[in-house]
Amino acid sequence: MNIINSISRHRSLFLVGGALIAAALSLYSDPDHGWGTALSGLAILQGIWAVAASHWARKALMDYPEADMRKLFARASENPVGAGLALVAVSIVLYGLLGVFSPRAHAGELPAGAVKYMPVLKAEQVRLWPDHPRPVLLASLVEQESCISLRSAGCWNPGAKLKTAREEGAGVGQITRAYAAGGAVRFDALADLREQYGAELGALSWSNVYQRPDLQLRAVVLMSRDSARQFRGAPAMLEFGDAGYNGGPAGVQRERRACAMTQGCDPGLWFGHVERHCLKSRQPLYGGRSACDINREHVRNVFQVRPAKYITAWAAL
Rank of each mutant, 00 (worst) to 15 (best):
I3V: 13
I3S: 10
I4Q: 09
N5S: 12
S6H: 09
I7H: 04
S8Q: 11
H10I: 15
R11S: 14
S12W: 00
L13F: 03
F14D: 09
F14K: 07
L15P: 10
G17I: 03
G17R: 00
G18N: 00
A24K: 01
A24V: 14
L25C: 06
L27Q: 05
D32N: 14
G36M: 09
G41A: 09
G47M: 05
W49Y: 09
V51F: 12
A53H: 02
H55W: 11
W56S: 07
W56P: 00
L61K: 04
D63P: 01
D63C: 03
Y64N: 12
P65N: 01
R70G: 09
A74M: 07
S77L: 13
P80F: 03
V81A: 14
V81K: 10
V81C: 04
G82R: 10
V88D: 03
A89D: 02
G96K: 07
G96I: 12
V100L: 15
F101M: 10
S102L: 09
R104M: 14
G113E: 08
A114R: 00
V120R: 07
V120M: 15
L121Y: 08
K122V: 09
E124H: 12
L128I: 09
W129M: 04
P130E: 07
P133D: 08
P135D: 13
V136N: 02
L138C: 08
S140V: 12
V142I: 15
Q144A: 13
Q144F: 02
S149V: 07
S152A: 14
S152M: 04
S152E: 05
A153T: 10
A160V: 10
A165E: 14
R166L: 14
G169C: 07
G169I: 11
V185L: 13
R186C: 09
R186Y: 13
F187V: 03
A189H: 03
L190M: 09
L190H: 03
A191F: 01
L193P: 01
R194H: 02
Q196C: 03
Y197S: 06
G198I: 05
E200I: 07
L201W: 02
W206Y: 08
W206A: 12
Q211C: 04
D214E: 14
L215M: 11
A219K: 04
V220F: 05
V220L: 14
L222P: 00
R225L: 10
D226G: 09
D226M: 11
D226I: 07
R232A: 15
R232C: 11
G233D: 15
A236T: 01
L238P: 00
E239H: 08
G241E: 05
D242V: 07
D242Q: 15
Y245A: 12
Q253D: 13
Q263H: 06
G264M: 07
W270T: 04
G272R: 08
G272Y: 06
G272E: 05
H273C: 05
H273I: 06
R276Y: 03
C278I: 01
K280M: 14
R282V: 06
P284N: 11
L285N: 03
G287Y: 08
G287C: 08
G287R: 06
R289D: 05
R289P: 00
A291R: 03
A291E: 11
C292E: 05
D293G: 02
H298L: 02
V302D: 01
Y310C: 08
Y310A: 08
I311R: 07
A316V: 13
A316S: 15
L317N: 12
